[in-house]
Design a protein around this nucleic acid. Sequence first.
DNA 1: CTTGACCCCGTAGTATGGTACAGGGTGCAT
DNA 2: ATGCACCCTGTACCATACTACGGGGTCAAG
Lengths: 136, 136
Amino acid sequence: MALTIGEIAKRAGIGLETVRFYERKGLIEEPPRTDSGYRQYPEDVVARLRFISRAKDLGFSLKEIAELFSLRVDPDTTCADIKRRAEAKITTIEEKIRDMQGIQGALSKLAASCSGSGPAGDCPILEALDSQEKDW
Amino acid sequence: MALTIGEIAKRAGIGLETVRFYERKGLIEEPPRTDSGYRQYPEDVVARLRFISRAKDLGFSLKEIAELFSLRVDPDTTCADIKRRAEAKITTIEEKIRDMQGIQGALSKLAASCSGSGPAGDCPILEALDSQEKDW
DNA sequence: CTTGACCCCGTAGTATGGTACAGGGTGCAT
DNA sequence: ATGCACCCTGTACCATACTACGGGGTCAAG
């Protein structure tokens, strides 16, 4: 039972333009067509689209997801290869978290230095942004 | 003593194309020109460009930085207004950190579930991405 | 046989923050 | 006076992930 692009998009919970976009990006295969040119998707493409959504939720870019698929297809790929990818991703995410925490700490410090009264001209936050030194 | 665009860019530690880009975006004012059309920057524009870099480091977008400038110019703006902006930014950054931590936790769980041996076809990471339920 | 929902393609636009030309003119030193 | 570094404008391009639109064709119900 083949599905139309609208059906498959609905089942995967994404827009149908997005399905075509993923096709152009090589994330899903080009499906067979009807005589009139309509795409005819096998049902398991829904699972693939959900895989993409889940991987995106885990912070993988579309490019990385495409790599994941090609790894999976390659018979020489091992479980360890996949694990390495996941661990590399964990590392970059941890780095991002640390960066964000640094930013958050600096901003909190700045916000704390501001009494919240008086004109903006005297605001210690803007002054800190103006000053040459950044001690944050 | 007016500075050329190249000088000012060098002093601010950014590219000169970026200076023009900021001008187009309204982050710095259009400077006066020489008869031949060269931009002539007053020295304090360096401070403004540094302010932009610093605010960017703190996670503000260019649009938000432009707002900060217009707040600063507005005589009705108070220190409390600036503080509110900073606190709002802290909140959104904290949210992002929590999101990232969720992703990191989920990925770590998946990576831990993988022994790292065997073919990719049996990889529990890929299986988790394939499965309907996400318990992560 | 008409109407409306759905599909096709290609292209362009969105937001973000720049970067890179191409094809010129200018400023200064030798 | 000639060479080189620097400046000018406008436009196009990079990555990321879509989203929208125009101008068509198709399918199924009534």
